[in-house]
Structures are given as structure tokens and as C-alpha cells.
Design a protein around this nucleic acid. Structure first.
Length: 177
DNA sequence: TCAGTGATTAGG
DNA sequence: CTAATCACTGAG
């Protein structure tokens, strides 16, 4: 039964993801990341903080060293996940954007009540088994829009001081004010 | 401020 | 094989 108050949100499609990462990243703010944990257990959280990583010349991006086994997902077309372990402890949730062989990804740093990329994946149960997952086809994780109307702020990316004066300071982190 | 943690990577 | 690195977090 479709009630007049039913939520009209829909899963985002490839068209949304296969744009430049600097367009996709801020557009993800206010949208919902949905996880189907099985049974009737569903998580639905508002994305509130993201970072953009783009191309070979971005010295903060894993793709700066080119195509490796780990970064393989970043070289695919937009709409899939790139998951990796950092500091031996934390799984990072990234959404690949853009076209094939143009490595880009959005790091999801915060959603719902969970601030910090490591705490978010721990809370959602996201690990390496989600690597390369297709957000348009998957039965266990996807993003829904249109999302909430939000005011967007931006600033430097976190934890990339090694990337040099320019790339460590560039304002490619976006968050809800 | 700083240690923990282990996959990934470059290099010999 | 070795050793360095690392898109973080929580304790002090």
C-alpha cells in the first residue's frame, strides 16, 4: 500500500556516480547510506562528511602511485566501493566515481551519529568483503536520494599531511554545516 | 602528545 | 625476504 506519506527516496544510479568526484562528493551530503544486514535489520544514515581523492597528481590519493592490486577498484567506473584497511585497524569506506581508468573516490567520513571513517565502518559492520561492491546492484548496501536539504561547508582533508603543501591544504573535504 | 595494528608496497 | 608507510582512534 502506497500511503501519501511514504518516503519517495530512490537508489542512486550509475549516472550519479560517473561524474567528477568534486561534483559527486558534495552531492552525497544529506543523502542516505542504506545497509541491509539481513532479516529485517536495516540501517539508514544521513551522510554528513566526505572527502574527494582524484587522479594521479593528487599526492594524497592512493592512485598517485598508479595501478596496484589494492587500488584496482579506483580505476573502475563510478558506482562501486573501494574498501581498504588503514593503520592495521580501520576499514575505510570509499565510493568510486567518474569514468574507467580515471581513478577517483569519495571517502565517507561520517554518517548519522557516527563521526570518523573508522568508527562508521565499525558501527555498520563494513569490512573487506564489501570491496568492489556495486552500489547500483547490491542487495546489502546502496545510497538513496534525493536526500535532505543541507548547508555545505568545506575545508582541508584530514590525515594527509604527507601530501605536501598544496595537496594537504586543498579544500576537498565537504561536510554539513 | 603518542602507541597500537597489520595489509600493502617498494626494494634487495 | 625486509622495512617503511599509513585517507585512524582512544588513552593519558
Amino acid at each position: 500500500m502506497t500511503g501519501m506519506y511514504e518516503n519517495q527516496s530512490e537508489r542512486l544510479n550509475y549516472e550519479f556516480y560517473r561524474r567528477d568526484v568534486l561534483d559527486v562528493a558534495p552531492d552525497l551530503l544529506g543523502k542516505w547510506v542504506v545497509l541491509n544486514h539481513g532479516g529485517s535489520r536495516i540501517s539508514r544514515l544521513t551522510i554528513n562528511e566526505v572527502e574527494a581523492y582524484r587522479g594521479f597528481d593528487d599526492l594524497a590519493s592512493h592512485a598517485r602511485k598508479g595501478h596496484t592490486k589494492r587500488t584496482e577498484p579506483m580505476f573502475g567506473s563510478g558506482g562501486r566501493l573501494y574498501i581498504y584497511l588503514v593503520y592495521g585497524i580501520h576499514w575505510m569506506l570509499n565510493i568510486v566515481t567518474g569514468q574507467e581508468n580515471n581513478p577517483q573516490a569519495v571517502l565517507i567520513r561520517g554518517a548519522g551519529p557516527f563521526n570518523g571513517p573508522g568508527k562508521l565502518t565499525k558501527a555498520l559492520g563494513i569490512d573487506h568483503s564489501y570491496n568492489t561492491e556495486d552500489l547500483v546492484q547490491s542487495g546489502r548496501i546502496w545510497i538513496e536520494g534525493p536526500g535532505e536539504r543541507v548547508f555545505i561547508e568545506r575545508g582541508p582533508r584530514i590525515g594527509v599531511d604527507y601530501a605536501g603543501e598544496y595537496w594537504s591544504k586543498i579544500s576537498w573535504r565537504f561536510y554539513i554545516k
